[in-house]
Amino acid sequence: MGNQAQHAVSHDEHAHAGEHSHHGNYVKIYLILLVLLVISILGPEIGIRWVTLITAFGIAVVKAYMVAKNFMHITFAPRYVAYLVGTCLIFMLLFFAGTAPDVMKFSGTNWQKPAWEAAHAEAAHGGGAAAHGESAHH
């Protein structure tokens, strides 16, 4: 294992030395990112909800991956770095999965939010809705 560790070091140095050829053209990556940005702005113009979601969040994921891969060189780092980042992201999904069933509800077995619901119902039926305009019903 000691040898293996040494091996890993030399392997990394090796990879580092060869990095220039792997890096590709940063300006090219940048231009691709800009094209993706334009698409994500144009997405909502079509006005279909699921298209907007894909152009907004799908492209955000692609952009983040491109930045991580090409600018942060996560793929040239030892593999545990990607596992580390991935684990943290999975923990956040866990947090969301465990919390959302409670937070995304307005009442439970033994509790309610009467004051907020009353205020909210007023806003929805009264002058509040008019003030928010048509976008409220998107």
Binding site: S40, A60, V67
Partner: peptide
């Protein structure tokens, strides 16, 4: 990257 996610979350998804 954080901003790349904040942008759709706060500005695009309406």
């Amino acid at each position: 990257v954080v901003w790349i996610f904040l942008f759709p979350l706060l500005y695009i998804a309406k």
